[in-house]
Deep mutational scan, measured.
Amino acid sequence: MDLSALRVEEVQNVINAMQKILECPICLELIKEPVSTKCDHIFCKFCMLKLLNQKKGPSQCPLCKNDITKRSLQESTRFSQLVEELLKIICAFQLDTGLEYANSYNFAKKENNSPEHLKDEVSIIQSMGYRNRAKRLLQSEPENPSLQETSLSVQLSNLGTVRTLRTKQRIQPQKTSVYIELGSDSSEDTVNKATYCSVGDQELLQITPQGTRDEISLDSAKKAACEFSETDVTNTEHHQPSNNDLNTTEKRAAERHPEKYQGSSVSNLHVEPCGTNTHASSLQHENSSLLLTKDRMNVEKAEFCNKSKQPGLARSQHNRWAGSKETCNDRRTPSTEKKVDLNADPLCERKEWNKQKLPCSENPRDTEDVPWITLNSSIQKVNEWFSRSDELLGSDDSHDGESESNAKVADVLDVLNEVDEYSGSSEKIDLLASDPHEALICKSERVHSKSVESNIEDKIFGKTYRKKASLPNLSHVTENLIIGAFVTEPQIIQERPLTNKLKRKRRPTSGL
């Protein structure tokens, strides 16, 4: 017993010596996670971090007073192994002897410093981030199933929210409404489509400006004509009531908005009720001829604005009016007729031209339509002016008669200019590109209106002035400009410049 007691005391002394060697000089306990400095002193990692955080910048070693920084600290694995072995020896000594260790306080702390507990403390002390800490805590505590279930439920809930957000973003663009038309193969669909197009076009005519009305009406008319041609002859009974509906809707729209509806009346003529396609083609032919005449008058307007600064050229074209007008009339009417003589009366030419125009518009179905009313009214106005011209010709002399006839021709041009508003800008460009020769010939008609105004002003003063002067240069210039014009009389060319000069002198006297 005595020997055993001596041996136990010796073992205890050895353990105490080893414990003092492996103590931390700051906390005076076994080193936890030993860290060595540049001066080869060993301290606990937790104690050194606490010391360095007390001051900004480098701190001093507690043993040798040298500078220490966080970067200079290094882990010493050898001392950590020695500490672990010492703890194992102490545990074995207690089991063999059955005696508690003399320094129970220190031993209890040593026992608490088992490797499992050290790992837990290291995970908390090290600044490795929240995710690494959570992982280490889960690994160190596998015995708690409640914690695992809560963490898994949190992760699953987070994943569910992310997935639901993604699915919502994908589903939202798919919620856009999609309209699908289910059509049938019955023959009544074509008639319904035609009526739908006509009503939609009328609404567009009321909303859209004048520049786009003609294009819309032309497209709708083409669509309706194609649909009529596709149907068989057996379905004509269905077409006639639908066309009557079209007429009623167009008349109502014309009564409500007459000014807006006139812009599309000329282009919509071939959508009118037709028994066969031949009647629609004839109407299209007549409309094309009318559009040609209207576009020519538009060309004359532009030329008149350009040549208004040259009064000499405008005056020299006075007698070329009849010849150029004959050529335009021959090209406007498709019928083959002989040219009228140069010395014939211009009023007779106008009456013949009106007689040619009237039969074209005397179809029984055309008179029933609303768009032809505008053309009939313009023709009636022309006839009224010609009836007035006959009365004026009986009273005035030959020279005054010529000037009045020219004035009436200008009035006719004004009437025809009203129809110019109905034609589109695209048709003007096509006419100029296809028929430049006709445009040059028809330019002379509009330029002549300037000389007509001068004659009217001469009649106000009650006299006409003449001068025997020749202007050969002007006649040559005008002959080169206009290709299809005829030779003019030299006496009238000489008379016109004198009248304008005298007018300039006598205007201030009349004002006084």
Rank of each mutant, 00 (worst) to 15 (best):
N144K: 09
L6H: 15
I89N: 01
G129M: 07
Q94N: 00
D40Y: 01
L152Q: 09
L73I: 01
S151V: 05
D2T: 13
S153W: 05
G183T: 08
E143H: 06
N53S: 11
D40E: 05
L147D: 04
S186P: 07
S184M: 04
H41I: 00
I90C: 13
I125P: 14
V299W: 04
L147A: 12
I15M: 10
R170Q: 04
C47W: 01
E143S: 03
I26L: 13
V299H: 15
T190C: 14
Q155L: 03
G160R: 11
A102S: 06
A17P: 00
S146K: 06
L30E: 03
E181D: 15
R166D: 08
S157Q: 06
E181Q: 02
R170L: 11
L22F: 09
L30S: 05
Y101W: 01
V83T: 02
K20D: 12
P142Y: 14
A224V: 05
D189M: 14
I42F: 10
S153M: 10
A102K: 07
K65A: 13
K294F: 15
V122Q: 09
L52R: 02
R7Q: 08
K135H: 05
M18W: 01
P115W: 14
C39Y: 00
S76M: 05
D67S: 14
L52C: 06
V178M: 08
S59W: 06
K175N: 04
K56E: 13
Y130P: 07
I42V: 15
E100P: 13
V14R: 02
I124Q: 13
R166W: 13
D189E: 03
R136A: 06
K32Q: 02
P173S: 03
K119G: 10
E143A: 08
V178Q: 13
S157G: 07
K135S: 10
C27T: 00
E100F: 12
S127D: 13
V11K: 01
S76G: 04
H117A: 05
E181R: 05
K56D: 13
D120Y: 01
F79Q: 01
E188S: 09
Q74D: 03
R133K: 07
E143K: 05
E84M: 01
C27R: 00
E121C: 14
K135Q: 13
Q148T: 11
L156Q: 04
C39R: 00
S104I: 10
G57A: 11
S76E: 03
K110I: 01
L159C: 06
S151F: 05
P58R: 09
E33P: 02
L52V: 05
E111D: 13
A134C: 09
C64L: 00
L3P: 10
L138G: 07
T97M: 01
A92N: 00
K56L: 13
L156P: 15
I31E: 01
L51E: 07
Q126A: 09
R78Q: 12
D120Q: 10
E143G: 05
I90W: 01
V8R: 08
A92F: 01
K45Y: 07
E100H: 12
S123P: 06
A102D: 07
Q19I: 13
F46T: 02
S4A: 02
C39A: 00
C39H: 00
Q81A: 14
H41A: 02
M48E: 01
P34V: 05
L28G: 14
A134S: 05
Q148L: 08
Q174F: 06
Q169N: 02
E10Q: 03
K65P: 09
E100Q: 02
N112S: 02
P34G: 03
S184E: 07
K55S: 01
S184V: 09
N235G: 14
C39I: 00
S140A: 08
P142K: 05
L95I: 15
V191S: 09
G160H: 10
S104N: 08
M128N: 08
F93S: 00
L182M: 08
E181M: 14
E10P: 00
D2L: 03
S140E: 04
V191K: 11
Y130A: 09
L165K: 07
P25A: 11
F46E: 02
K50G: 14
K135M: 15
Q54K: 08
L63S: 03
V122G: 07
S157L: 06
S80G: 12
N158P: 08
F79P: 01
L22S: 01
Q148G: 05
I171D: 13
N144R: 12
E116A: 07
L30H: 00
M48G: 08
V191L: 11
V14M: 01
Y179R: 09
Y179A: 11
L63P: 04
Y101V: 10
G57K: 11
Q60N: 09
L182R: 06
E29F: 02
L82E: 00
A17Q: 01
E111L: 07
E111C: 02
G57D: 14
E121M: 12
E116V: 06
N106H: 15
M48L: 15
K20Q: 11
I124L: 09
E29C: 12
F107D: 03
E111Y: 09
E121G: 06
R136E: 03
I89S: 05
S157R: 11
V154T: 10
A134H: 09
L52A: 06
C61G: 00
Q19P: 01
Y101R: 04
T190R: 12
E188W: 12
S76T: 01
R133L: 07
L95Q: 10
D2M: 03
I124V: 11
D67P: 14
S114C: 00
E100K: 13
K88E: 07
K110M: 11
R163D: 12
E33N: 13
L156S: 10
T150L: 07
V178S: 12
V178W: 05
V178Y: 08
Q74G: 07
Q60E: 15
E100S: 12
I124C: 15
L6G: 11
A134K: 11
S80W: 02
S151H: 02
L147R: 06
D185T: 05
F93N: 00
G129K: 11
G98I: 00
K38C: 14
L152T: 03
D2H: 03
Y101T: 05
L137Y: 04
T37E: 01
L3Q: 03
P34D: 03
G275D: 01
L73W: 10
S157P: 09
Y130I: 04
C91R: 04
K20A: 02
E100V: 11
V122M: 09
N132V: 02
M48S: 05
S184L: 10
V178P: 05
R78L: 15
V178K: 02
K20T: 02
I171R: 09
Q155W: 11
Q139R: 12
E111M: 09
I124S: 06
N106D: 12
H117C: 01
N106T: 12
T176S: 05
S151G: 09
F43Y: 13
K38L: 02
R7G: 05
L73V: 03
S76Y: 00
Q148K: 05
I21H: 02
D67Y: 03
I90T: 04
D120V: 10
R170E: 09
N53Q: 14
T167Y: 05
C27S: 00
I31G: 03
N66D: 11
A102Q: 09
Q139M: 05
L52K: 03
K135V: 11
T167L: 05
D189Y: 04
C64T: 00
Q148C: 12
L159N: 04
D185E: 05
V11G: 01
I15A: 00
H41Q: 02
V162N: 08
S153G: 11
P142M: 02
C27L: 01
C39T: 00
R131T: 12
T69K: 02
S104Q: 04
R163L: 10
T176L: 13
I124D: 07
E188K: 08
L51G: 07
I89T: 14
N53A: 12
S114N: 13
S153R: 07
L52T: 05
L73E: 02
E116L: 09
V8G: 03
L159V: 11
